[in-house]
Design a protein around this nucleic acid. Structure first.
Lengths: 148, 148
DNA sequence: TTACAACAATTGTATATACAAATGTATATT
DNA sequence: AATATACATTTGTATATACAATTGTTGTAA
């Protein structure tokens, strides 16, 4: 992906600014493709992410603040995001008996089944996105990203 | 920035997935910081980007579709974004005489003056973001990002 | 010249997100 | 026990964005 081409500029961009723009462009592209892959399943990337977190709990519930901590993109309104999943019967919510302030959220069998299908679609896109990288390059990239 | 720490996970993430999450996290962090830097000036990153594009036109106008082409994050609704800048007197809009379908947008002196102040704030954040990188590393990173 | 397709921008509508204030619950202090 | 403080979630409101349909303009082909 060539930065200058994507933003249709002819003038040279300083290395620092170019790097920052580059990160944004790659992320935009990735998000677009991932979001499109999820479109048939009618969930957003954020919703998919929450489902994955819930599955990772292996039966144990997660409350809202835990979900928010673990989300890739933290957001101010996890309640309404979970509402959407609830409406699809992908999750179940219960008031925590030990601490009635907390809400415990579980993934349902229906949610798990849907998630499995999404996994396949996402994996396909991930492969496509990363197809031009060798393992060494990916390690190198991760090392560089760690410096941010 | 450590991926596992940010998303509070203990289990190992496969290299490919980790890379994609990593990109998202870095971009989120960058956007947060850039957006915060612009907050005192009451413009969004997108609006800032449009102002920069207009300045780059050096007096020549840009129409909406040109703006959209050059924006880092393309969006479906440039009209309303420009409306916001218009409300602040940062831009001026005119119907194109040669082709009355097109709208020509210019940055105003007031917009230019505001932009200069924003530049300083943004530059500061950009430096902070990239402080841990050597020039060689930035070049290496750009080369890797090109592969997406 | 009229009809039709393509273009450029705008508008309507639904959805998403940010931020602050409010609600309800638990804990700590006196 | 009463009060204040902190916690966890929810709600209200403003703003942002996506997507589709609409408006107005231009170019083209019969």
């Amino acid at each position: 992906m060539n930065v200058e081409e994507v933003i249709k500029t002819s003038s040279a961009i300083p290395l620092g600014k170019r790097t920052i723009i580059h990160m944004q462009l790659v992320r935009n592209k990735m998000d677009d493709e991932l979001t499109n892959a999820l479109k048939p399943y009618e969930v957003s990337l954020q919703q998919f992410n929450v489902l994955r977190i819930l599955r990772g709990q292996k039966g144990k519930p997660a409350n809202l603040s835990t979900l928010n901590e673990r989300m890739v993109s933290k957001m101010s309104n996890t309640t309404r995001l979970v509402d959407k999943l609830l409406a699809k019967d992908y999750v179940r919510r219960e008031v925590c008996a030990a601490n009635r302030r907390k809400i415990e959220i579980y993934i349902t069998p229906k949610g798990n089944a849907a998630l499995e299908k999404m996994d396949a679609a996402i994996l396909k896109v991930e492969k496509a996105i990363l197809q031009h990288f060798t393992k060494t390059e990916l390690i190198q990239l991760n090392t560089l990203l760690d410096k941010f």
